[in-house]
């Protein structure tokens, strides 16, 4: 594997309703990421974005978002209809070729334009699952109940996850929820309380990658990618053990995770999912997990995973960590999981 590092990160604050449209979100965050490294768009070798047309209801909305990038001279550009973490994966693979030494990855999403829990239903298996219209909360509720029934966790454990993330979010100016965890008195989809569920918000993020000497020139302390992989499970919920995340465990092993990192940023939109991820990752007892407050404090859908990579990298760039793990998820009940291990060298 080539030496490739995250050298820059920018994000918008996540807000219930962004004032700008997608182009304005992208322009703001991409400019900030490039400007802080002194780069222009034509310095960037490869550009890749992650978003979902279903969030805005407009086919090919990602094409118009390119207006925020300034794609002239014509950019080498690609897009994934997934969280921006997978766009970062594509950019990392692209940089392995060796002919390019920088990549820019961005993600944007406005969950506020539609009913996000219902929009997420459209990603389900279309013949026997989606027509029943279980929304995202209902499916996360099934998973939470399965954990309780297996005696893998209690509702008090869920509350602890919420409480810890919300406390961390107090210090994150980009977080949407910046208040301590409320009392558990708002049932959503049993056994989930409203506080176990992510806030609905809009946002964008941008990460810049560079190879070898270029990374060292752009950044004093690059967050080198030791390894990265993503694995997926069947889309039939009834054929999975919802209490476990074998795809996370396999991705982590392949990414070179040895059980110890200083910081871990986990993409767990629902509090019980953090418990499942921690177990799949061997506990993470010594790690500072979600110092950003995680997805429970800010969940701009399609961006949340890329923010995990950005936050984990920033901890290394700033000298707050020597090793970090970043995780992103996609699909219902942690169906698809990406793990990256980052390190200072």
């Amino acid at each position: 594997m080539a030496d490739i590092a995250i050298v820059g990160f920018a994000q918008t604050p996540t807000r219930p309703q962004s004032q700008g449209d997608e182009v304005e979100l992208v322009q703001a965050v991409v400019s900030q990421a490039r400007d802080q490294l002194g780069l222009r768009q034509d310095d960037i070798g490869f550009t890749c974005s992650g978003s979902s047309d279903f969030l805005s209801g407009r086919p090919f909305s990602f094409v118009s978002a390119v207006d925020g990038l300034g794609a002239w001279p014509p950019a080498r550009e690609s897009h994934v209809e997934m969280d921006g973490a997978w766009a970062l994966f594509e950019a990392w693979v692209r940089l392995q070729h060796g002919d390019l030494d920088t990549a820019l990855v961005y993600a944007f999403g406005q969950s506020s334009l539609g009913a996000i829990e219902k929009i997420l239903t459209a990603q389900l298996e279309p013949y026997t699952t989606a027509p029943l219209t279980p929304d995202a909360n209902a499916l996360a509720g099934l998973q939470a109940q399965a954990l309780l029934l297996a005696k893998d966790a209690t509702e008090a454990d869920f509350a602890k996850v919420v409480s810890r993330n919300r406390r961390a979010g107090l210090d994150n100016p980009h977080a949407q929820l910046r208040s301590p965890a409320p009392a558990r008195n708002q049932p959503v989809a049993s056994p989930l309380d409203a506080s176990d569920c992510p806030p609905v918000g809009d946002g964008a993020a941008c990460v810049i990658l560079a190879r070898g000497d270029r990374a060292r020139a752009l950044c004093e302390r690059p967050a080198w990618i030791r390894g990265m992989d993503h694995r997926i499970e069947t889309h039939h919920l009834g054929q999975r053990n919802l209490c476990q995340s074998p795809s996370t465990a396999a991705a982590a092993q392949s990414a070179g995770f040895d059980g110890h990192v200083d910081v871990a940023e986990l993409h767990a939109p629902y509090s019980p999912q953090e418990l499942i991820l921690r177990r799949a990752l061997g506990g993470l007892e010594t790690a500072n997990v979600n110092p950003s407050g995680g997805a429970l404090c800010a969940n701009p859908v399609m961006v949340t995973g890329l923010i995990r990579l950005g936050e984990a990298a920033q901890a290394i760039i700033d000298g707050r960590a020597t090793t970090a793990l970043a995780h992103a998820t996609s699909g219902p009940c942690l169906q698809h999981n990406l793990v990256a291990v980052l390190e200072a060298r």
Binding site: P134, A138, L142, L149, L242
Partner: peptide
Amino acid sequence: LETWSWQPQGDFAFGLIRLDGTDSALLHR
């Protein structure tokens, strides 16, 4: 019934149901 989530609309749950003699679960109301 393997696992379920009671829905806030009030009168039903989504559940994963393992039909007798089978080895996977079906999602239904």
